[in-house]
């Protein structure tokens, strides 16, 4: 029984193909301006890797912001449900998932069986998402990929307290003018993102193991700031970006009545 999960986010599209409880292949591409085209393209890429074709798939579940635009999906399920399932597969001891993507952030309480206990999400405000980091990287003239490692060299992170991305930009510029070092500012930016998400998640509550997923999970600086913010150690799966698509593929198996 081969199933696939297709996660179409605002920035990237991912497909994971699963068979016999194992990941066969996966692919990640930029979404671009067409959800339908991106879904098809990324799925074909994953199929190619596994040397399969579309008819080989018994069930496809789509998820993410563009989940309703995937014509070949049998069902659409929200990314929160899929994330919980995906993380549970990779790290069975996971009880809290912090997901920070390009456009939104979520904190999910997960049960032993991978179902969702509670969740909270922010998709209204750029602060506390990858977008915040992107904007700030732009102002500092840095590549977003460098941000994490730069922040780790900071001795005295700045405190950036603006709740609005636009104002934080201004705040950062004045810190620069005051002579604060680049690494202290970058560390401050990471703290700001982590702090927003940490406070948001209090309503769900943090229980170990805490797992960090989403595009921003690759940023060690944010991970460290989150750990400091919630006071618990944080695990990061090897490929944090595909967790949603993985969960979708696993849920697809359930649809076929396959026991775990």
């Amino acid at each position: 029984m081969i199933t696939a999960g297709v996660d179409v986010g605002a920035a990237t599209a991912k497909t994971v193909i699963v068979a016999d409880g194992k990941i066969l292949s996966y692919a990640v591409i930029p979404t671009g301006d067409s959800v339908a085209r991106a879904a098809e393209k990324v799925t074909r890429a994953a199929l190619e890797q596994a040397r399969l074709s579309m008819p080989d798939l018994s069930f496809v579940i789509s998820t993410g912001y563009g989940r309703n635009g995937v014509s070949f999906a049998n069902k659409a399920v929200t990314e929160i449900i899929c994330h919980a399932k995906g993380v549970n597969f990779l790290i069975p001891a996971a009880r809290t998932v912090i997901d920070i993507g390009g456009q939104d952030s979520k904190v999910i309480g997960v049960r032993e069986d991978g179902t969702v206990r509670d969740f909270v999400m922010n998709d209204k405000c750029a602060a506390g998402t990858g977008r915040f980091l992107e904007v700030m990287a732009g102002v500092l003239g840095l590549d977003i990929k460098e941000m994490g490692s730069i922040s780790l060299t900071s001795k005295e992170p700045c405190s950036i307290s603006s709740t609005c991305t636009i104002f934080a930009e201004t705040e950062m510029v004045s810190l620069r003018a005051d002579g604060r070092t680049r690494e202290d500012i970058v560390a401050g930016i990471h703290r700001a993102v982590a702090s927003r998400v940490a406070i948001m998640g209090k309503t769900v509550g943090y229980k170990e193991q805490v797992v960090f997923t989403g595009g921003v999970a690759k940023n060690l600086g944010v991970k460290n700031a989150l750990e400091a913010g919630i006071g618990l150690p944080i695990l990061i799966p090897e490929e944090p970006q595909i967790v949603g698509a993985l969960g979708a593929a696993l849920l697809a198996r359930r649809e076929l009545g396959v026991l775990r």
Binding site: V77, T78, I81, T115, V116, F119
Partner: peptide, 20 residues
């Protein structure tokens, strides 16, 4: 759209709890 994502998630969560 944003409300729908949350409601659908919640519905799924409740169905799973009820099934359990």
């Amino acid at each position: 759209g944003q409300l729908r994502t949350r409601v659908e998630t919640f519905a799924e969560l409740l169905r799973a709890a009820k099934a359990a």
